[in-house]
Simulated assay, not measured.
Amino acid sequence: MQKKLTIAIAEDVYEGLHKVIGPRKISKFVEELVRPHVVKPLMEGEYARMAKDTKREAEALEWTEATFRDIAHESR
């Protein structure tokens, strides 16, 4: 279910949203930006789901280890 929300923003921001995002897409744009900051349980569930993907986790670990090896050899 959706709820209607009225917010006040600067005129230049409003105009920019209309030009860049489009007048019928602003709500979705704002929701996608705000959601990760206010709907924590969904993020935690997604992290748990991702952690169960053993192939993805192995690739992430390999990438992390390679990155740390690269950093260890950088000159300061």
Rank of each mutant, 00 (worst) to 15 (best):
P23W: 07
K25H: 09
D12Y: 02
H18D: 05
V13L: 15
A60E: 13
L33D: 00
A8G: 02
H18F: 01
D12T: 04
I9N: 04
E15T: 13
E59A: 09
K28D: 05
T67W: 07
I21V: 14
L33R: 06
E74L: 11
I9F: 02
S27T: 14
A10W: 00
H18C: 12
L61M: 14
K25F: 06
V38Y: 02
E74K: 08
H73L: 10
A51N: 06
M1D: 08
A66D: 05
Y47E: 04
D70H: 12
V30E: 02
H73P: 00
T54Q: 14
R56Q: 10
A60P: 00
H37W: 11
S27I: 10
Y14F: 14
K4Y: 00
A51H: 01
R49I: 08
A58K: 15
E65W: 09
V13C: 10
A72T: 05
K40N: 08
I26M: 01
E65P: 01
A66Q: 07
V34F: 08
G45T: 09
E46L: 12
I9M: 11
S75P: 07
P41G: 02
G22M: 07
S27W: 08
R56I: 06
E65N: 14
S27M: 08
D12L: 00
G22T: 04
K4F: 00
A58L: 12
K40C: 03
K40V: 02
F29K: 07
A60M: 13
F29A: 11
I71S: 01
V20R: 15
P36L: 09
A58S: 13
M50R: 13
I7V: 15
I26R: 01
V38I: 13
Y47I: 07
H18S: 05
I9P: 02
P41H: 12
L33F: 10
R35L: 14
G16D: 10
W63D: 07
K40A: 11
M1W: 03
K19T: 02
